[in-house]
């Protein structure tokens, strides 16, 4: 009896120690980037052009990350939400549903570098576009779509059956029911899913190396609105090195002090961006939820 009590105490202490250890590692990681970047960080770092000789800015690559995010979500949101509606409301038990589910599972397990290879084969080589923002966005669609589809499906399935029954009992068609009774209730969950999915675009790099490209960014002229001009920052048909890819590039270049510093600050920016998306998704979902249930 005594021995089992001792064992219990030791086990409890070990589990506490594990938790403290993991949190310490996390705090150390975030702390490292904070301590390293704060002394040289300034707001202009976010917007100015990079430099080959001193600590430049990350304006163009940050712009590319945002641009790619918007472009990817332009494809992902309609397809993902509609697909989610199908899986939650229409899909039966048949082989087709099984095939869609298996495809979703499969894609989420394929390494992102392999998805990148696929994107290269299809959107760079076969189409003859070369390395483009559009090719990168379509590649990201490959793994963002199944994710958003699953998150939307979950949000729609969580809507109480009574909502549907009430609407159908009033004589609405199935689509009217989905449109006016189900979707409004599911919106907070869907929005959370969209923001979470969008956050992944920022962190992704491996799938973009051979699709959106990794050329050294140049100065962007935002007054150039010609969408077909590869020099225009608005064009989807241009090389678009994102912030994550830019950090990866730092490791292949000489580790001069300023390259080092730029990568440290870029990492901090990237962490903060992803955090904003993760926390933002929950906050936004909650806010919408309160607004809807408050009505």
């Amino acid at each position: 009896m005594k021995r089992s009590l001792t064992a219990d105490r030791i086990a409890t202490a070990v589990l506490w120690a594990v938790a403290v250890f993991v949190i310490t590692v996390l705090v150390a990681i975030i702390g490292y980037f904070l301590v390293e970047s704060i002394p040289t960080f300034s707001v202009s770092f976010l917007f100015s052009d990079p430099s080959d000789t001193a600590i430049g800015g990350i304006g163009p690559v940050l712009w590319n990350s945002v641009y790619l995010l918007v472009l990817t979500m332009l494809f992902t949101v309609p397809l993902g939400v509609l697909g989610g509606i199908y899986m939650a409301e229409y899909a039966g038990e048949g082989r087709l549903t099984e095939a869609i589910r298996f495809s979703q599972e499969l894609i989420s397990s394929v390494p992102s570098i392999v998805v990148g290879l696929f994107g290269f084969a299809l959107f760079v080589a076969t189409t003859g576009w070369g390395f483009t923002a559009l090719g990168g966005a379509l590649t990201l669609l490959v793994f963002n779509l199944p994710l958003l589809m699953r998150l939307s499906e979950q949000a729609i399935r969580a809507v109480p059956a009574d909502e549907r029954a009430a609407s159908l009992a009033l004589g609405s068609t199935k689509w009217q029911t989905i449109r006016h009774a189900v979707l409004p209730v599911a919106i907070p969950g869907i929005v959370t899913g969209i923001v979470l999915t969008a956050g992944r675009v920022f962190g992704e790099a491996a799938a973009l190396l051979f699709t959106a490209g990794l050329s050294t960014p140049v100065h962007y002229d935002f007054s150039n609105l010609n969408l077909l001009d590869p020099r225009s920052p608005w064009s989807p048909f241009r090389n678009a090195t994102t912030l994550s890819v830019y950090i990866w590039k730092s490791n292949s270049e000489g580790l001069g002090d300023f390259v080092h510093q730029v990568a440290n600050m870029s990492s901090m920016v990237l962490i903060v961006m992803v955090l904003i998306f993760n926390l933002g998704s929950r906050w936004l979902g909650g806010a919408l939820q309160r607004r809807i249930s408050g009505l």
């Binding site: 990681i29 490292y32 980037f33 956050g199 920022f202 962190g203 992704e204 790099a205 491996a206 994550s244 890819v245 950090i247 990866w248 730092s250 490791n251 990568a263 440290n264 990492s267 990237l270 962490i271 992803v274 955090l275 998306f277 993760n278």
Partner: peptide, 11 residues
């Protein structure tokens, strides 16, 4: 979960 893989690599 949110820390991107390139950041781990860089660290």
């Amino acid at each position: 979960v949110g820390i991107p893989s390139v950041v781990y690599g860089w660290l």
